[in-house]
Design a protein around this nucleic acid. Sequence first.
DNA 1: ATACTCCACTTAACCGATTAAGCACGTAAT
DNA 2: ATTACGTGCTTAATCGGTTAAGTGGAGTAT
Lengths: 354, 354
Amino acid sequence: MPTIKDVAELAKVSTATVSYVLNGTGTITPGTRQRVLEAVATLDYRPNHAARSLRTRSRTLGLVLPAGATGLADPALAELVAGLAEAAAEANYFLILAAANPDRDETTLVDELVRSGRVDGLVLLDPLVDDQRVVKLAAHGVLLALAGPLRSDLPGVAAPIDLAGGVQAAMRHLIGLGHHRIALITLPSDLVESEQTFLAYSTTLEASGLEPDPMLIVEAGVSQDDGMAATQELLTLPEPPTAILAASDALAFGVMHALRDAGMTIGADMSLVGCGDVPLAAHIHPALTTLRVPRHARGVQLARRLIALIEGRAQPPLDPLPLQLIVRRSTGKVRNRGIEEQRNRGTESTPEIA
Amino acid sequence: MPTIKDVAELAKVSTATVSYVLNGTGTITPGTRQRVLEAVATLDYRPNHAARSLRTRSRTLGLVLPAGATGLADPALAELVAGLAEAAAEANYFLILAAANPDRDETTLVDELVRSGRVDGLVLLDPLVDDQRVVKLAAHGVLLALAGPLRSDLPGVAAPIDLAGGVQAAMRHLIGLGHHRIALITLPSDLVESEQTFLAYSTTLEASGLEPDPMLIVEAGVSQDDGMAATQELLTLPEPPTAILAASDALAFGVMHALRDAGMTIGADMSLVGCGDVPLAAHIHPALTTLRVPRHARGVQLARRLIALIEGRAQPPLDPLPLQLIVRRSTGKVRNRGIEEQRNRGTESTPEIA
DNA sequence: ATACTCCACTTAACCGATTAAGCACGTAAT
DNA sequence: ATTACGTGCTTAATCGGTTAAGTGGAGTAT
């Protein structure tokens, strides 16, 4: 491999001059520049990354994949990562992936990446409401990008999405179909999304003159099974909902399962809206009405902003990315008799309980 | 950030000694080792990666994502990458992702990663039958892992899968259902898989005493649309097939589309087997019978072998990873009248043509 | 004519590790 | 007693860049 020294010799200049030419710093006469560039070309010289980043930044972003989780197999994450990688490439950065495992957990990896100087900034997935990781890292001066909603009290850049607007659109859609009793199945409350979703849900209900019923709000986990359990809970209510808004597609798939188990027809007996629009949502039966989250665009914005932060450029204020309501077959007009039917069913089963 | 110098001072030894302790090289008394390790702990010292890899290897694998393609959004690729990242982590390596874009194409990125010393080895996706990239890179001494079938004439490590065995299983399944006219829709012939699939297809047919019909073999592209086009071609045959083996799930989805357009019932009028078992295959309607490719395991093996190559360890010979035939609803018993029906349809339309 | 300022470079320190070579000391062999 | 060798360190060169400080010469102000 040729080094900067070889280039300098061939161009009959010092290595400093070569460096100045290549980095666009310093003052160089056109003739010298020409000679240097020719030498670079003939030797097919490429600066050594390690040597360079010993003095400067590493031009690399880091991403730690949590262990155990579905990881990249989760299409939602994969799309985000694709966006990150593309935006990084666009700015001549690379993206370094670290997978956590039992030996080296997330914290260790983050430490390793940051303190060894391998990365200039870090992307953190799924920030929590009161995320200790974030607080600690930021305190150590680590530049962060949070792949989730940003609360003003957390440092670091974020690529906000208009969750509130999306939820509002979904609710209006359901209300427009005649639904009054709309249940909300949320993500765990320690995720920042959870709070936002709940707020938008409540606000929209009230703005539409509908009375929120606390019984219709159930906090679930993140998995399909959690969605199932939550639905079963909702179905035992004396006055069950006629529509369900699930805070993620995964939860919605679980809801579907539970509804089918209960012998209900999705879209007719019960309307269902998911959130995310993962590829499966369009292909499952019935196709899921859901909020499309611009994951790729989010990854792109996130990486761009992180790089801007690294390079000390001012951050242009950003509009939250809009969500798009994709109406498919899992939502339909409320059946007035639907509620009666439910009531009757409830009555029928009372003897067994009593 | 503390440096090795700080550690040395605190432990009252030279930096060399610290290095020896940390790398397990050299001869060190227990007492000294103890003091050094304590100093490392109190300072929370972590070696600088750039400085280290200026003298040694970078302990990093590279992966270039082709531009334009679906990239990581392709679940098949995402699973492979997840496997790569995990196996890399397991050996204390990291994985660096470079996304190609119009400015910097795949070749440039590969060059940048390798010649700048950022990576010790490279994973190449979709090797072609006569891949110039591979030849050139190998000639430059770049260590390669090919995420695809390895032809003995290509250098680099691979994680072979038993495509032949899988295709054989699929064919036997179809033959067992009574199919005699089984079409094959292959991937572009410049992909190594293509050849292997064709061979296994032919061999199995002959071994079963069935006569291969060249008309039933059609080379397609990689997209769903290509699968559609190929199917339309097959359906115009005087003697159309009763079953189709598609070399990828994407192609199979295209086949489904074409069959539905032709008013046929998949699994009854025409059996269909895909290859890959992407998540969608299980959820599409009807669920696709397909060959499950162990993508994650393949990524793991690939990374492990590449790292072994980098570290100069001997490569234990590897059994090809088995594919698993997942029988779902897209395959069924041949309908004898099916062929008649097809003939009749053909006859009916003859007047229009004549 | 002298001083001052640019310009276009060069010199050399520096980044933070690894590692070959050297050195002092104790022990064993001749 | 002398040589030889192994042990446990230190010294210093080295990896390949960046960049602050220095330098000689041309151009301009006084």
